[in-house]
């Protein structure tokens, strides 16, 4: 395991993710998530859909697949404009910090071709730059898909943070194979309702 991967997966990496809840804020507001059990069910569903897609794409981006093509394929897998915007904002911010932390031709090339890539693509290309394997890049993307929402639930519901981390520890990571297209209709609904909400603590 390369040290760069640890930095890349650290929630304290200053790349703006702390303000994204991945639909959790709206799910809490609508009462869909209200305790540990519903949180676990939400996270498991998010992981096997959005998480699996992110893992597959981060893995392929790390393996050197053309990022522009991957980006277009992710657009086709992200029907919700709110989710596309959240993914591109996080991708842009990650790319920004990655270029300053790990200056490299690969990241410059990515920024030149895609100034605001979908997050899994920024993550995958950066993972390759720090020497991580495609499988590790996929795992990092899958974790990113659930750690942000889990932390948001801690803040929004006052859940025991240790219990929430125990939930995270028991989730099965999807294996980052191929380019999955698993969709989650409720995440789309939550994202679109969240975007229209006048009172928001999180960006997404």
């Amino acid at each position: 395991m390369t040290p760069g991967l640890l930095l890349l997966t650290d929630s304290r990496l200053p790349a703006g993710s702390h303000a994204h809840s991945g639909g959790m804020e709206q799910a809490v507001k609508e009462g869909l998530v209200h305790d540990l059990a519903s949180l676990e069910s939400f996270l498991a569903g998010r992981l096997r859909t959005a998480g699996a897609v992110a893992a597959g794409f981060a893995s392929q981006a790390c393996a050197g697949h053309d990022p522009v093509e991957l980006d277009a394929e992710l657009d086709a897998r992200t029907a919700s404009p709110a989710q596309r915007e959240a993914a591109r904002t996080q991708g842009r911010l990650l790319l920004r910090v990655a270029r300053r932390i790990w200056p490299s031709p690969a990241l410059e090339e990515l920024a030149g071709r895609l100034p605001s890539p979908h997050h899994p693509i920024a993550l995958g290309v950066t993972a390759a730059v720090v020497g991580a394997t495609p499988r590790e890049a996929g795992a990092a993307a899958a974790y990113h898909a659930v750690t942000g929402p889990a932390t948001a639930a801690v803040r929004l519901l006052g859940l025991d943070p240790v219990a929430v981390h125990r939930v995270l520890a028991t989730l099965d990571l999807p294996s980052p194979d191929g380019l999955p297209a698993a969709s989650a209709p409720l995440l789309d609904l939550l994202a679109e309702r969240h975007r229209r909400s006048p009172v928001r603590l999180f960006v997404s």
Partner: peptide, 20 residues
């Protein structure tokens, strides 16, 4: 800029969204 319940994080520890 939304700060995810942590206003100090957004101006001190993770300034990415504000710089953006």
């Amino acid at each position: 800029v939304e700060t995810g319940c942590c206003p100090h994080t957004a101006i001190r520890d993770d300034i990415a969204a504000n710089v953006d």
